[in-house]
Amino acid sequence: MSGTTPFFEIRNLHAKTEDKPILKGVNLTVNPGETHALMGPNGSGKSTLANVIMGNPVYEVTDGEVIFQGQNILEMDPDERARLGLFLAFQYPVAIPGISVAKFLKGAADARFGQGNVKTGPFLKQVREDMDYLEMDKSFINRSLNDGFSGGEKKRMEILQMLTLKPSLAVMDETDSGLDIDALRIVSKGVNRMVGPDFGLLVITHYERILQYIKPGFLHVLMDGQVAMSGGPELVKEVEKSGYDWIREKFGKEVLV
C-alpha cells in the first residue's frame, strides 16, 4: 500500500494519563470496507485507545501518529476529527440535561454537513425512521439527551447518532457491555447498516458475543498498551476457547492481574 494515503492508520502511538503510561506503541491499520475487532484483558488500554483516537483531553499523547483521511488527526480538536468523519460510540454516554435529542442531533448534523445543508423537515423524518429501525420509542426525540436513559437506551442513542452523522470510520468502545441479548441484536443491526465498502469499523469489546452479530475480518489483541497479536476470524475462536494467557506467553509479557 506504499505510495497511497492511508485511510486510517495508528502508528507507534504512546499515551499517558496523570503520568501513567497506558499506550506503549500501538500500531493498527483499518482500510475502507473492513471491520476490525480489538480485544484484550482489563487494563490493557482498549478504552484509552478509543478516547485518544477521538481526542479526549484527559489523555496526553507522548509519541506516534494517528492518520485519518491522510492527515495526522492528533493535531486536531475532537470536533474537527468528527467533522472529518470520525465517530466514537462511547462506553459511558454522557447526559446533557435540557437539550433534546432532536436539537442535539440537528446541531451535530449541521456541524458535520454544514449549516444550510440539513433541512429540518426531511432530517427529522429520517431520524424518526432510524429510531424506528433501532426500535426506539418516538418520544425519545423530545427527551433530554441521555438524561435518565437506561444503559440500553443510551447505547441505542449512540448508534442513532452514528446513523445520523454517517461517519467513514467508527470506533465502538465496549458498546456491547451491559446489553441484554435483544438490545445487542438491535445495536448490531444498526451497526451493520453502516457497514459497506466506504466504511471502516473498529469494535472494541470484552466479549466474543457481539462478534457473532458484527462479523470482523480482523482481530487484534491489546496487551499492556501494545497490539500483542493480530489475526483473522479464526483468532476470535481461539481467544474464546483459550483466553489470553497463551497470547501473553507468546508475546513474552508478565501476567497482569
Partner: peptide, 25 residues
C-alpha cells in the same frame, strides 16, 4: 460533557453554549 458534545463535531464555543442553555432550560 464538553468532550462528548465536541466528539459529535460541535465546536467548543457552541458546545459550551449548548450545555449552559440546557442547564438554564
Amino acid at each position: 460533557q464538553l468532550f462528548y458534545v465536541r466528539s459529535r463535531g460541535i465546536d467548543e464555543e457552541s458546545a459550551t453554549s449548548m450545555i449552559v442553555n440546557g442547564f438554564c432550560k
